[in-house]
Simulated assay, not measured.
Amino acid sequence: MVPFAGYEMPVQYPAGVMKEHLHTRTAAGLFDVSHMGQVILRPKRGMEALCLGFEALMPVDVLGLAEGRQRYGLFTNETGGILDDLMFAHRGDHLFVVVNAACKEADVAHMRAHLADVAEVEFIADRALIALQGPGAEAALAAMVPEVAAMRFMDVGVFPWQSNELWVSRSGYTGEDGFEVSVPEAGAEGFVRTLLAQEGVAPIGLGARDSLRLEAGLCLYGHDIDTGTSPVEAALTWAIQKARRAGGAREGGFPGAARILRELAEGPERRRVGLRPEGRAPMREGVELFATDGTPLGRITSGGFGPSVEAPVAMGYVPASYAKIGTVIEGELRGKRQPLTVADMPFNPTTYKR
């Protein structure tokens, strides 16, 4: 157990990080992610006004999100940097938002300050959040809540289990099919114990959660993205829908639009890339990156050994001219420079149920 964002969190269980990682890829891993912030936005003047107000905080299409669906979002600042990344769902008469643990107080204050005219911002403090990930996740959860089997990637729904109301999304942050389930605090332990009693379900800690998301090429806030990083630099342009881009129905109108729209049109000066170090030794966060002629390029923002790919993997930022797949650069490890190759992401194929 270690301190993490003000919580005591498990790094690993007795099986260890490697086995937990591989178990999630082959069966079902259960993660307690209750440290994440859960927020409900209730409209004051109708859902359209709420959606327009919320999308004024980020370069994402909120108005076009269908009821019963979820989307990835990014709060941006006036210089085009990322304040936080988040998930938000359209649940008919309100939006449900999940934000990162370390940013949740700032995010709630940000929403209250900017959405005062269109929304009641309710921070949810009495519900746990459980992630169930892997190819066995559907069978395990459907044994308790049969309706979830019909859900597809990024669907959301509300279902009963015993005397509890479960808020379910078919999503996660491992690259695997799976679910995130918000459950009332009073029913959380019973829900988790019942899940763990299902065949193939095992508890997974922070260590494997990090290696799983790294293999999936997914960003960790405060490491791969931050207030100085734009969504375009971070290779998150897939999260910016056509409606918010140049020529779109609601072009711009979000913090940092000038920079973000310019980078979308012209390209950024640097880009987040996948990296494959040679050999077996992982290159971790902070390793400095260089061109083969010694020119400093940037640094690694996430790195480690990928148990599923049986090799070290990393992500980092390099000038755009070095971002082409197959480019060979160098990283300084223990005083020696060793080669890495710019690689496509994800490193391990995703298995989302489309």
Rank of each mutant, 00 (worst) to 15 (best):
Pro3His: 05
Met9Gln: 11
Met9Lys: 14
Pro14Ser: 11
Val17Phe: 05
Met18Leu: 15
Arg25Trp: 04
Phe31His: 07
Gly37Cys: 08
Arg42Ala: 13
Met47Phe: 12
Phe54Ile: 04
Phe75Cys: 04
Glu78Leu: 11
Ile82Ser: 00
Leu83Ile: 15
Asp84Thr: 09
Asp93Thr: 13
Leu95His: 01
Asn100His: 10
Ala109Glu: 13
Arg112Lys: 15
Ala116His: 13
Ala116Lys: 13
Val118Phe: 00
Val118Arg: 00
Asp126Val: 01
Arg127Gly: 09
Gly134Cys: 12
Pro135His: 05
Gly136Tyr: 05
Ala137Val: 05
Val156Asn: 09
Trp161His: 12
Ser163Val: 09
Gly175Asn: 04
Glu180Gly: 09
Ser182Asp: 11
Pro184Ser: 06
Ala186Met: 06
Arg193Phe: 03
Asp210Glu: 15
His223Ile: 07
Asp224Arg: 08
Gly228Arg: 14
Trp238Gly: 04
Ala239Leu: 09
Ala243Leu: 10
Arg244Tyr: 00
Gly247Ala: 11
Gly247Val: 01
Glu251Leu: 05
Phe254Glu: 07
Leu261Asn: 04
Arg262Pro: 00
Ala265Gly: 08
Glu266Leu: 09
Leu275Gln: 03
Gly279Cys: 11
Glu285Tyr: 06
Glu285Phe: 07
Thr292Asp: 09
Thr295Arg: 15
Gly298Ala: 06
Gly303Ser: 06
Gly304Pro: 12
Val313Arg: 07
Met315Gln: 14
Gly326Asn: 12
Glu330Thr: 05
Gly331Ile: 03
Pro346Cys: 11
Tyr352Ser: 01
